[in-house]
Every structure is written in structure tokens, then in C-alpha cells.
Design a binder for these strands. Structure first.
Lengths: 249, 249
DNA sequence: AACAAAATGGAACGATCGTATCAATCCGGA
DNA sequence: TCCGGATTGATACGATCGTTCCATTTTGTT
């Protein structure tokens, strides 16, 4: 069990003592188009894995560099601070997911007028889940780690309204707007609640927290998302429809 | 933004260097029945608040003692290690919640045979939520913090299968067994999935992560659980029924 | 081959970490 | 009033934290 942590005032004080950032040589994106982004991606992959397991504060930069067998200065060179590294870890995967989601939205738009309420709600669930689900089940462990980081962060105010807000917010509005097409008379409160409840249920499933394993004494696995998703889909579709159809909403 | 963290091998190494615990004078429970549990409860309250805000690794013992204006040694005296303090924080509230839930189960048992599927599923949602919901909405901030700690931990494998497992596990089985009374033909996989999906949705709402505030630009508040719960209840009841009624379950 | 830029290796800084020690103080029962 | 255990104050220790610096090596381009 790891133990240490950091005191908030400390970091602030240290930063205040040296306010002038010494214009360090730091790359934003690699100029070479293809072959050798070794260290940078290795840092991202390793950090992603460790952040997923123990959270931002549970991982030190030295944990990452030791695991990846690289030197401490490389992290500072490529990413600057630990915060910026975390942000880079999240944004790398998010870009890919977000692009696919936007394509799905665009493809859906012309068909929307002819879709039933249920079909629209099913589209909300699928557009949210399928892009990340297919990647998680594809086998690349990085996507599982990313899903866990999001599941983790979405349930902590500090992250959900902090670093992750820029990632979570725009999509949320898109989804709520889509829900509104099925339920134009539902209030914003109802739409946002329905969406957030879906997020909670889906994130809990995506997080692969191992509870299904212990509850079933090893008979089922929380990593078997292929078996879980059909049930999760039914759950959230029925849930969102029930929430949005309430008279008082 | 706080920064530091701890390296796992470090704590283990340190513990290994001094394996003999020097039988310290540490109380398990206060002998005095009433008036003066000042410091001990102050530590618990402060730790609870900070753990809820930044998580276990985001809070140092000195954060707690500084905030509470007490001395560092008192934490070690009353609780031993930081891990034991965290466990004590969780278990204090859990005992109260768990007792009430067991009463609810007992009170429900004689009526179960005459209840509809829907009524049983509604009972699952209510018995899970109402004990903690009434306390959170009662105004004591400690219960909000506790809810956030659980919401946080339930979505991280490390906690959900670690320290929190002893808290989450027995209740989960009770609830799954209750669900099985409504859906005797549903598989364990279906029942556990339905229950866990409810946990995910409810925990996300209980966590009061502030996303409802930002999404609605301040119009609604994620802390207004009285407005959210009716919708969450409809959501999870419909969701669990839909999940359990699937033919392939 | 030569050279500037990109990247790494190695070491260090000061701050903070969890935990422990121990004398001084508090406090209820005798 | 006194006394012994419960509790606190003050301080310390070694380890680890995030971050930085600079000399050295690698690398792409001329």
C-alpha cells in the first residue's frame, strides 16, 4: 500500500517562488511523422497504466520513469510538469474517441426525424459506449487504462470539474441535445440527469473494478465487457426513457 | 493543484525494515461513554472531509493535522497508520448505514411474497439509497463526504477490491438476493450486473461531482439530491427491470 | 563529415512525506 | 490530594516527492 501524498499549499508556494518559467525547450508535437517517437509514447503509455491503477496522486513521476526504465529528466523535457503529463495522457485517447463520436453524430443527423424515441435513446447509449468499447475489447491495454481513468475522474468533483471538464463537457451537451430530440418537452434538469446517470452506470462498468469477480467468486469477470454491455445497454436505455418520460420533468 | 505522491516499494521497504510493531498504547474504542471524544472525532471528521475532496493519496497526514489544528502524534496515537485512519473513517459511517439497511431488509421480508416485481425492485433502490440519502440531505457535511468517498472508491479497482471490499461486498449479496426474489429465473450474472449498474448510477449522483452545475451553467445543482433522486430512482428501477427481464439472462 | 537541434544521463535542490520517540501534561478514580 | 494511565507537544529520522540544471550523447540535415 503506497502511502505518501502532497500538501496543496506546498506546490503553490514552490510555484510562487519561481514564477518566471524559464522558457524551457519543450516539444509540443514531434516533427518526425512516423518512426521514432519512442520515449515520449513510452512515458504516456506507462503513465496511463499507473494512473489507472492508483490515481494521479498515487503515482509519482519516479514510479513512471522506473517502470519505463527511462530517466527522470525526460518527463520534464517532453511534458513539463506532472499535471501536464496527466493532461496529455487523457487528451491523447480523447481526441480519437471524440472524432469518432462526432462522425456518429453527423451520420445520425439526417435519419433523426424518422427515428422513434427508443431508437434515439439507443443511439445515445451506443454513440457513447461503442467507440470506447470496441477499443477496450480490441485488446490494447491502454484503452482499458484510459477508461479506468475516466471512470475514476468522473466520480470525483476535483477531476470532473477540473482537468477532465474540458473533456467531459462538450460531449455531454451534444448528448443532452440528442436526448432532447426524443423528448422535446423534458426539462434540461431531466435531460442532464438522465445523461449523467447513464455516465455513472457506464463508467462503473467500463472501470472494470473487479467487483463482479469477487461477488460471483470468480465465475464472472468485470473485464468481460462483451458480456456486460448488452445488459448495460438495456439498463441505461430503459433508465433514460423512464427518467425522461416522467410527467414532472 | 497538489502534486506529490508515494512510491509503493518505499512503504513496503520501510515496513519491512521494522517488522516488529512495538505494541504501542493505542485505544480501539473510547472507554468513556459520552462527553469527551474531542480529538479522535475531530481527526475523523477532518480526514473524512479531505479524503472526499482529494482522495487518499491527495491528502497527507499533515494536511489533516494542520486543518484540525492538532498535533501529528495524535493521529498515530489514535489510529496508527494512515491506512488505518482511512479504514476508520469509512467504517464509522458504514456501521450506521448498514444497521439501518439490515432493519429495512428484515422489515421487508414478511411482505415480500405479496409484492410485485416492480415493488421489489423499487425496494432495492430505496433500501440502498434512502438510508444514506436522508443523512446527506440532513445537512451534516460528514455524510456528504462519506458518500463522495464511497462514490470515488467504488469506481477504482484498487479500492473496490481492497479496503472497501469488506464494506461493499456483504450488502451487494443481500441486494442481489433480494433482486432474485423478483426475478428467480435471472442468472447471477444478470443480477450482479443489474445491481452494479445501479451502484454506478447512484454513486455518480451521490458523489455530487458538480457536473450538473457546469452543464446547466449554474441553473441546477448536483448537491440538490432531493430534486435528483426521484429521477435517479425511476432510472435505476426501470434499468434493473429491463436488465433482469431480458430473455438471454 | 560537420554542425545545430533534439534528447538523454546523472546528479542535485529544497520541501514534504509517513512514522516514531519521548518527555510533559491532562484527568478520573483512589 | 495523589497517582497511574490516557493523551498531547515537540521534535526527529530517513525516504521520497516534484522539479531543475547541465554536460553529454544522439539525430536529422547540410
Amino acid at each position: 500500500m503506497p502511502t505518501a501524498a502532497a500538501r496543496k499549499p506546498a506546490a503553490e508556494k514552490r510555484r510562487l517562488q519561481k514564477p518566471v518559467r524559464t522558457a524551457k525547450p519543450r516539444r509540443e508535437a514531434k516533427p518526425q511523422g512516423e518512426a521514432k517517437p519512442k520515449t515520449r509514447d513510452l512515458i504516456l503509455d506507462t503513465a496511463e497504466q499507473l494512473f489507472a491503477e492508483r490515481g494521479f496522486f498515487g503515482v509519482s513521476v519516479r514510479d513512471i520513469t522506473d517502470t519505463a526504465a527511462i530517466r527522470l529528466a525526460s518527463v520534464n523535457y517532453h511534458f513539463g510538469t506532472k499535471d501536464e503529463l496527466f493532461r496529455a495522457v487523457v487528451e491523447r485517447r480523447f481526441r480519437e474517441i471524440d472524432a469518432e463520436r462526432r462522425q456518429c453524430f453527423a451520420a445520425l443527423e439526417p435519419r433523426l426525424a424518422r427515428m422513434s424515441k427508443r431508437e434515439i435513446v439507443e443511439a445515445v447509449a451506443d454513440i457513447f459506449m461503442l467507440p470506447i468499447l470496441t477499443r477496450v475489447t480490441s485488446g490494447e491495454p491502454g484503452w482499458t487504462a484510459y477508461a479506468q481513468i475516466i471512470a475514476h475522474g468522473a466520480n470525483v468533483k476535483m477531476w470532473a470539474t477540473g482537468i477532465l471538464a474540458s473533456v467531459l463537457d462538450p460531449v455531454a451537451r451534444d448528448f443532452a441535445a440528442l436526448l432532447a430530440r426524443a423528448y422535446p418537452k423534458a426539462s434540461d434538469h431531466t435531460l442532464f440527469c438522465a445523461y449523467e446517470l447513464m455516465i455513472g452506470a457506464m463508467a462503473h462498468a467500463l472501470g472494470q473494478n473487479g467487483r463482479l469477480d469477487t461477488l460471483s467468486k470468480g465465475k464472472y469477470r468485470s473485464t468481460d465487457l462483451a458480456a456486460i454491455y448488452p445488459k448495460a445497454r438495456r439498463f441505461v436505455v430503459a433508465g433514460m426513457m423512464a427518467a425522461c418520460e416522467a410527467k414532472d420533468g
